[in-house]
């Protein structure tokens, strides 16, 4: 796993995201301060429209804040260029989406290898690495199947393997169990807990309290601010 150098792997100071709607300014994020440490498993909760997706996008370097400072492992990323953001997403962040977001025309192994393509890793090394990571999520026998030949739970495991393949600092999961049945949800959450135990930093967006309860830290977002910051096991009502 990548060695971190900063005290907090994520450090947000006064993050605001303001959208111009007509002649009105709407603040999706109204000033967020947040530290997340190496190895934390944080759940972001909040009703829809609370700003948790915007926060997630900024944390994931898919979007830039309007104002504020975002230090990822000590490096300021709030003002990076598009290309540098792409590089940051590629090397430091692994994404897991609610609807899996796998490319349908290529095999599971090729999907897992995608971030390595953009990291400039050779074909042979990609093949080797992607199969190894697929094995770690229990899918070695499914490596050559296309996504449409896999079950929802298996697809999400492929997506997790893809998030892990470039050995990122942080795993960002946006409602990863939203489209899954109870059994698959349990399997996926076990994988996340396993990753947490092995020391990975995980940020997980969910609106289900049972899922959030697996995390070591629960953050409630409301009206563009973090309104509660609680430890593991504390029951938190979203509404």
């Amino acid at each position: 796993m990548a060695q971190t150098k900063a005290e907090h792997i994520i450090e947000l100071r006064g993050i605001k995201k303001i959208y111009q709607v007509g002649d009105q300014e709407v603040a999706a994020l109204a000033g967020v301060d947040l530290n997340i440490d190496q190895g934390e498993f944080a759940a972001l909760m909040g009703p829809s429209g609370s700003g948790k997706s915007t926060l997630m996008n900024i944390l994931g370097c898919l979007d830039r804040p309007t104002v504020g400072s975002y230090k990822l492992d000590g490096d300021e990323v709030a003002n990076l260029s598009d290309d540098d953001l792409a590089l940051t997403r590629n090397r430091r962040i692994g994404f897991v989406f609610q609807n899996f977001n796998l490319l349908s025309r290529i095999s599971a192994a090729e999907n897992v290898a995608l971030p390595l393509v953009y990291a400039g890793v050779s074909r042979r090394e990609r093949e080797e690495k992607s199969r190894k990571v697929l094995a770690s999520v229990g899918l070695s026998d499914r490596a050559d199947h296309q996504p449409n030949e896999l079950s929802g739970g298996q697809r999400q495991r492929v997506a997790i393997a893809r998030a892990l393949v470039n050995d990122p600092h942080i795993i960002m999961a946006d409602e990863p169990t939203g489209n899954l049945d109870t059994k698959s949800t349990k399997e996926i959450m076990e994988i996340f807990e396993g990753l947490h135990e092995s020391g990975r930093t995980i940020i997980l967006v969910t609106h289900e309290p049972e899922i959030a309860a697996c995390a070591s830290r629960q953050l409630l977002v409301r009206d563009g601010r973090i309104t509660r910051d609680a430890g593991k096991g504390e029951k938190m009502d979203v509404v």
Binding site: D83, A86, R89, L114, Y118
Partner: peptide, 13 residues
């Protein structure tokens, strides 16, 4: 394209 970009594809890629 969105997926590729999220995984680190640049404008040039």
């Amino acid at each position: 394209i969105g997926i590729r970009k999220a995984l680190g594809a640049t404008f040039k890629n």
